[in-house]
């Protein structure tokens, strides 16, 4: 499959509206509106220090993945799309000897080179303790965002962003981050005085701040909670259902492959998209958002095929 095909394949969201637009003959955004923005979100999760591709004798992913191949694909997308966001949902560390020997330095250096805009903190980011993470943080030329770990009593105090606002074209994008409960998952000696807070409450607070105070066009959650649990434990699906303004959740931890992204109805009856790309950097997630900011703040949902046609015009 070529990249060109990838641009066009998958996930056509047909709505009532799309039907109307088609029926009317002229898609209304085509009528003199030049304020449609295209944002391309590229995302990874649980890359687990997989700097080199898997070896040829790997039972699951022979010769697949690797940072240099990921970087090439990202450059390719950047050449085609003006507005790109590149994000990671945690567990960058642990999984190959690179981490055991260098403690995360190459991973963060290389991700900086690829132009990552942000990452959140996965449980494996604690594997060399808070000291281990603090030591390699200077190699990351991008922020780590987490909103529900309180690091104020640790050496990471003020080194992790609670939330972050990024701008792309005419879009204002608010990002917050959610981390999994550490107790029972990470050794106490590793996470030290980090305090975990309920992700649901934190998510609700963060989206209020990003939407109502900062008026972000898009509210994005970087999560390392995991996609879904049978037990009802807090997960991306739970967060999606309990929030009102969060548009997209880019998740990790459960190594789930969501292709296309999952769609969950939120507390306001809107769709939240959840993306997760499996693990080990064998795949790169891509979401293309086509915004319409026509007529004040009334935006429109349409049929993907139409949008692509619009692009061709």
């Amino acid at each position: 499959m070529t990249l060109k095909n990838i641009d066009r394949r998958t996930f056509v969201k047909t709505t009532m509206l799309g039907g109307f637009a088609l029926g009317a003959g002229i898609p209304f955004w085509a009528s003199g509106n030049n304020d449609v923005s295209h944002l391309c979100i590229l995302h990874t999760n649980d890359t687990h220090s997989r700097i080199d591709p898997y070896p040829s004798n790997d039972p699951n992913f022979p010769m697949m993945g690797g940072y240099a191949r990921r970087a090439a694909l990202i450059s390719q997308v950047r050449n085609q799309v003006e507005h790109v966001l590149l994000l990671d949902a945690g567990d960058i560390f642990q999984g190959t000897p690179y981490y055991n020997i260098y403690g995360g330095e190459p991973e963060l250096r290389l991700m900086t080179k690829m132009g990552y805009d942000a990452s959140t903190i996965g449980n494996h980011e604690f594997d060399n303790g808070l000291d281990g993470l603090e030591r390699v943080l200077p190699y990351a030329g991008f922020p780590f965002i987490n909103s529900n770990y309180d690091f104020s009593q640790t050496i990471l105090n003020e080194k992790i962003e609670t939330y972050k606002i990024l701008y792309r074209g005419n879009l204002k994008i608010g990002i917050y981050g959610l981390g999994i409960e550490l107790e029972g998952l990470v050794g106490r000696n590793l996470y030290g005085n980090t305090v975990y807070h309920d992700p649901i409450k934190v998510a609700q607070r963060m989206e209020m701040i990003l939407k109502e105070e900062h008026h972000c066009d898009l509210v994005l959650c970087l999560s390392h909670l995991g996609y879904k649990y049978e037990t009802g434990k807090v997960s991306d699906v739970v967060i999606a259902g309990k929030t009102r303004y969060t548009d997209i959740i880019l998740g990790g931890h459960t190594h789930t492959l969501l292709d296309p992204p999952a769609q969950i109805e939120n507390a306001a009856g809107k769709i939240v998209y959840i993306g997760q790309t499996g693990y080990a950097g064998v795949r790169l997630g891509r979401m293309d958002l086509y915004f319409n900011k026509n007529s004040g703040k009334i935006f429109v949902e349409s049929n993907t095929t139409n949008i692509l046609k619009y692009q061709d015009v």
């Binding site: 191949r69 990921r70 390719q76 296309p260 306001a268 293309d288 915004f291």
Partner: peptide, 23 residues
């Protein structure tokens, strides 16, 4: 509060067919 955008999502396998060259 209608959805303000259309979203198209996919996951791209990083193999030598999709990405023949590395950086």
């Amino acid at each position: 509060d209608q959805q303000r955008y259309t979203l198209e999502g996919s996951v791209i396998l990083l193999d030598s067919i999709n990405v023949p060259e590395t950086d």
